[in-house]
Structures are given as structure tokens and as C-alpha cells.
């Protein structure tokens, strides 16, 4: 072969492969698939090229769930002023949630809680996505800024440790490993022990009664303000015994704890 023959032969062969494969891929194959409902040649080429189409949001079903959209850095930084305002506003919360955010009843402990987690629940109480006879009335008069302030205030307070790292007793199997084939990941993969998913609460120090009650409510869908059913899906698959084990473990209260099987 001559020297200049190489160049034209290589370019020609490459071009032929490209053109033939493009004709097959962009025209013949799409047109051979009637379910695509293509309107013609140009539509075939566009769909095969991946020109973006948006599905019509036709389904506008009535929503009873949360309307909050979580963002990665929400409430990530708080100024002292906001925390101070939150401290003042939090006086009204102290009756149930404790003067330092540490509850001595079956209401949640808030000290050191992730700010976005508190904020989301306040929003949901306000919109009615989450309902509680005692809590709901308190939220009615809170402004957007009030909710932010309260959230960052409680987040600022020192956190009760999760027994995960501080106690000798092993976490029950359902907490440490979940139950993979039931679609239950380790609790800590969202709730902060292993990693944290924005909006998920820190569980350490919650009272066993509150913890158990919420999981049961999720399981029965009486509580349904979790985004995309993420917690209901898991709670439904947990057995009552597992719910008890997790509740006792995170509360730090005594109870029959199953050791982690090796």
C-alpha cells in the first residue's frame, strides 16, 4: 500500500463504520420499535440521540405527606443571634422537651439534634403533614424564621451520646446490621452513627416509649410525613421485638438486649 493510501483508507474505513452504525442506531433500530410511538424520521433520530423529554406531571394526586424539600447544606451554619432567638423561643418548649432539651417524658429529646431534622418536623407540624394533639397547637404561630431559630438552638446544645460508641453493650442485630433481605439497612447509615442523611434525626437518648411509638406509627402509616415513605417502608418490615430492641438500645434504658451474633 502506498503511503498516502494509509491515510485515506483509515479515515474512510472509520467514517464508514461510524456512518453505518449511526444509520442503524439512529434510524433503523428506533423505527423497528413501535412502542416508542415515533412520529417520523426526525423524531427517531432525536430520540436515539437522547434529546431530553420531560414526562408530563399528569398525576396530581392529593398529597397528605410532607412538602419540605431537603437540601444538603440547609441550616449548616447558624449565627449567634439566631441561636439566641431560638433560646428565647424555646422557653415554650421546655415543659415537654426539658429545660436543656433533654426530655424526661415520652416527648423527644432535642439537645444536639441535627438542625434540619428539627426544622423539618416543625414544618410538617405546621402544614399538618404530621399531627400531634399536644405539639400541633404550639407550631401554629411560629414563623419561618422562628422554626429556623429553634432548630439551630437545639442543635447547638450538647448531644446525648448514642450508646453505639459509648457503652460496652453491643448493639442489637437490627440496629447494627439491619436485615438486608427485608430491605432494612443499619440504622446508623442514615441516623448519624455511620453516616448521616439530611433530615434524619439523631436517635441517641430518645425515650424508649417515644421511639417505639413513632416506629409503630410509621408502620401503621398513622405517621406519614417521611419523604418518599423512607421510614414507613422500613418500620413496616420490622418485627415488634426488633422495634423494642432498637427502642431500648437507643434510649439507653435497661432491657433484654440480644447480643450481636458472630
Amino acid at each position: 500500500m502506498k503511503r498516502d493510501g494509509w491515510t485515506s483508507a483509515s479515515i474512510g474505513a472509520t467514517a464508514i463504520v461510524f456512518v453505518v452504525s449511526a444509520v442503524v442506531g439512529f434510524i433503523l433500530l428506533p423505527l423497528a420499535q413501535p412502542h416508542l410511538g415515533l412520529t417520523g424520521l426526525w423524531d427517531a433520530i432525536c430520540s436515539a440521540a437522547g434529546v431530553v423529554s420531560r414526562p408530563s406531571p399528569a398525576v396530581e394526586a392529593p398529597q397528605k405527606g410532607t412538602t419540605v424539600v431537603m437540601t444538603p447544606n440547609m441550616l449548616a451554619s447558624a449565627d449567634a443571634q439566631s441561636i439566641g432567638r431560638g433560646a428565647t423561643l424555646a422557653h415554650q418548649c421546655a415543659i415537654c422537651h426539658g429545660p436543656a432539651g433533654i426530655s424526661r417524658a415520652d416527648s423527644p429529646t432535642l439537645s444536639g439534634q441535627f438542625a434540619p431534622a428539627i426544622y423539618k418536623q416543625l414544618k410538617d407540624f405546621k402544614t399538618g403533614a404530621r399531627v400531634n394533639a399536644v405539639m400541633s397547637p404550639f407550631v401554629v404561630n411560629l414563623s419561618e424564621q422562628d422554626m429556623v431559630d429553634i432548630s439551630v438552638y437545639y442543635a447547638y446544645l450538647p448531644r446525648l451520646p448514642s450508646p453505639w460508641r459509648t457503652q460496652d453493650r453491643p448493639a442489637p442485630k437490627i440496629v447494627a446490621s439491619g436485615a438486608p433481605l427485608r430491605g432494612i439497612a443499619p440504622c446508623g447509615s442514615c441516623h448519624g452513627d455511620l453516616d448521616h442523611k439530611v433530615g434524619s434525626p439523631w436517635l441517641g437518648g430518645q425515650s424508649a416509649g417515644y421511639f417505639r411509638g413513632q416506629l409503630r406509627n410509621f408502620a401503621s402509616a398513622d405517621r406519614h410525613n417521611d419523604i418518599n415513605e423512607q421510614m414507613r417502608t422500613i418500620a413496616r418490615r420490622m418485627t415488634p421485638e426488633e422495634i423494642d430492641e432498637a427502642a431500648l438500645y437507643y434510649s439507653g434504658e435497661a432491657g433484654p438486649i440480644q447480643p450481636l451474633p458472630r
Binding site: S21, A22, G25, L29, S47, A49, G50, V51
Partner: peptide, 12 residues
Amino acid sequence: VGAGFKFVHSVF
């Protein structure tokens, strides 16, 4: 990614 490009890549 569009199916057409997938096919072209498959050939190459």
C-alpha cells in the same frame, strides 16, 4: 444516554 449513541459505541 440516547439509544443511538449506545449502539454506535457498541459497534466500536
